[in-house]
Design a protein around this nucleic acid. Structure first.
Lengths: 171, 171
DNA sequence: ATAAAAGGAGATGTCAATGTCCAATTTGTT
DNA sequence: AACAAATTGGACATTGACATCTCCTTTTAT
């Protein structure tokens, strides 16, 4: 390649890439979102097993990636995976026994702050004022998620929508 | 290459790379953590300006990266940056006027869930039961962070540690 | 004026999360 | 035993957050 072109080529990505200092990522990961959608869908269909393809279609999750997420849920004992004809995914517990927190912690555990992120000897088990507040926020999320079971999600007589529904009509 | 060796070679990277399905990332980004440390430190020293190097040293944040974070905080009007000899970083408001939420939203805004992530027409402004719970969790974090100002963090007569202290002795 | 002391801006590197694809394996049915 | 359905799991690609480095610009004390 001619030397004179190298700098040109190098500068191109800089023009296309928009570098923003503030971030726009959601607080919960995509993986958590996907896992919750899949499990809620399974709860709706419970106890009938569903194939990965069916769940992917119903919840609009990329099926190949959903497969990975489901493997993780299986390792944590949330779902059962059955190979072969007539197989598929099913809940390993009754919807009344699974909370949102169970699902979240299975794929992306909430990391409570147990000690100062700076590694200071000055406080052993004590959190400083800042990190104490941050940990309280984490605790409130934990509490909120622990307080709702899958069964309650389905019974919830919200505006009218069970999951992000309309799939009930589809299947 | 002999055919019999191909599978051997392909399997090697799988042994070295440990692929984990569950994630270990904290709920709050590093950038948020860094921004909060820096601002709390500034509040402790308020209203004296501090150089980026001093803050980096005191809060154990990589100085080059801290510089970026501080630029972001400046754009949001949280801090003032003063060039030249005797310059440095200072709070743009009094510690009583800044909440933890102000800092968090400046660098990594909390994204409340306003509509269904699946894009369903069946519910316009309505959140389904699942996403309503998730949004409530986000709301609880917002509330927790909005309830504490920087000044309150400093006054907090915790175990005894203002920030992750010990720096008071150092300067 | 000028030199020193700061921050500003952008390229670059690295790693993990996300997402896709394909071959291997398991299992029920015929 | 053979076949087909379905999961399993590894390889690979892409993206963005995190982090560093280097050169540039601004400010101000002297």
């Amino acid at each position: 390649m001619p030397r004179c072109l190298e700098s040109v080529i190098r500068v191109v990505p800089a023009l296309t890439r928009r570098l923003s200092l503030i971030q726009v990522e959601p607080m919960f990961s995509q993986t958590v979102e996907y896992a919750l959608r899949a499990v809620v869908h399974l709860a709706m269909k419970s106890p009938e097993p569903q194939t990965t393809a069916l769940i992917a279609d119903a919840t609009k999750v990329p099926s190949a990636y959903l497969s990975k997420v489901l493997q993780g849920l299986k390792e944590k004992g949330i779902v059962n995976l059955q190979r072969g004809i007539g197989g598929g995914v099913s809940l390993a517990h009754r919807p009344e026994e699974l909370t949102i927190l169970d699902i979240v912690n299975a794929v992306d555990p909430i990391q409570r702050i147990k000690h100062c992120p700076l590694d200071l000897k000055s406080h052993g088990a004590n959190l400083c004022a800042l990190h104490l507040r941050m940990d309280r926020a984490l605790m409130s999320v934990e509490t909120a998620f622990r307080s709702t079971t899958l069964a309650e999600l389905l019974q919830d007589s919200n505006p009218s929508v069970p999951l992000c529904d309309q799939l009930a009509a589809k299947l």
